[in-house]
Amino acid sequence: SVTEIRSGFTAIKANIQARDPIRTLSILSYPHSLHRVKSSDRCCITHHLFNFYVDKVFKHCKTEDSYVNRKISSIANSFLSVKRKLGQCHEQNKCMCGQESAKKFKQILVNYEGLNVTSAAIKSLGELDILLDWMEKSR
């Protein structure tokens, strides 16, 4: 559940964000923060972002710290569980993707691919609270 993702992330947030030296860039917030997403596009953006984290981010976040790795595993497995539910919504056409969400998600991928994969993955993981805050505000 999102609550468990939040508590898992909170436990390692400082550690992960300390590993991200590039302060002037953002994966999720540049140029417009997620908060400028129309409500009709929210489900689709969330679905895309959960796929993004599961497919691209977590696997490149391995650290030398066993505790951090266990928490990343917890978050990744919780993401997988939520991703599955979002996938069901998508299949039942309850999660329509408009041009707006496609454009926004494409920008996120451009931001991500603008960095080397490890830096991009660690930065994305460090920005998880941006995603979680946005999801909770849009509930």
């Binding site: 599961v54 497919d55 977590f58 696997k59 595993s73 990744a76 497995n77 993401f79 997988l80």
Partner: peptide, 11 residues
């Protein structure tokens, strides 16, 4: 040791 579904399918 443990292995979640994420580790099996993506790692």
């Amino acid at each position: 040791e443990f292995q979640g579904e994420y580790e099996r399918e993506y790692a």
